Amino acid sequence: MPNVVPLPDLTQLIGLCEQAGRAILTVREAGFRVDAKADASPVTAADLAANEILVAGLGACSTLPILSEEGPAVSWRERRQWRRFWLIDPLDGTREFVDGFNDFTVNVALVEEGRPALGVVHAPASGISWAGTVGKGAWRWQEGEPRAIRVAPRWPPRLLASRAHLDATTRDWISAIPGTQLERCGSSVKFCRIAEGKADLYPRFSPTCEWDTAAGQAVLEAAGGAVLAAETLEPLRCQQGESLLNGHFIACASGAWRDRLAAVAHRAVWNERKPSVE
């Protein structure tokens, strides 16, 4: 029987993400150049430094394959054989990082059979980490002390939207929910704010990749929430094909809100199509 290195626990993973976070802050303090990747998204020395730390650390404590936003491309022919693997975004919210905001994160997720099973989201600027294992619970770490977190759903919802991607469809959604409160912020912090009971809903109708969402999805689901594909209202899945792009999704404090969310979607579409009266 082959030797299998045990998976690291959440405390080990948080330590690794904190190390990557310190490297990001070091780059920010020293100043950096912004380059453009093939898809025109920004990349900096901070993304690459964090990636090097995470890949080396995960490789040293696990035998699982690693898929990273800043790593080499892996063909679908190879990836489709993976049943368990690490999915990482070394610096989620690079645009926020470049623009001087603090809500950028380090994301590490363990994906099992197409579902995020474990996730760590670390916010270097604040030093706060959120982590969770689906079926076991979620925690918020600050100054080395963990505190259990849980969703606290309420309706009308406290709604979160991306700072950089508040598109027309999201605006239609907001207008279709009377009494909603809107807050805008960046990166996977939005999943974590729902997980710790400080928000309720995060609809996303502009492009994201699996590494943007997997760690936050694991934390939120571990805290009792849900991340649902917008079209089907079924759980959002990874590893569904050659493309690493997600479909539209809704992160929410309660998976029992499917009927409400379907009604909101109907109202948003109806309002969009309703003829204007001059």
Rank of each mutant, 00 (worst) to 15 (best):
G71Q: 10
L64I: 11
V27R: 13
L201H: 06
A256D: 15
G127V: 02
V106Y: 11
P235V: 06
Q181E: 15
E112Q: 14
Q217I: 07
E113K: 10
P153L: 11
P275G: 12
L48N: 08
G216Q: 05
R147K: 06
A148H: 02
G216W: 07
A265E: 13
T11W: 06
P207I: 02
V111G: 04
A49I: 06
E183P: 00
G57T: 13
G114A: 11
A138M: 10
S41V: 02
G255Y: 03
R158G: 06
V55E: 15
L13N: 07
D39E: 02
T94N: 05
K37T: 09
V269M: 07
L91I: 01
G137P: 07
G224N: 10
I24L: 13
L201N: 06
T63L: 08
A46N: 08
R95A: 06
L160I: 05
W82F: 04
A138P: 05
W82K: 01
H165W: 05
G144L: 10
P90K: 12
V264A: 11
A109M: 05
V227N: 04
R163T: 14
L13K: 04
D39R: 04
L220W: 09
H266N: 07
L160P: 09
E113Y: 11
T232G: 07
C185L: 15
G100Q: 08
S187Y: 07
F32M: 02
A36G: 01
Q239Y: 00
V219D: 11
V27T: 13
R171L: 15
Q239D: 15
D167M: 00
W211F: 13
A251W: 03
V106N: 04
G21S: 07
V264E: 06
G144C: 05
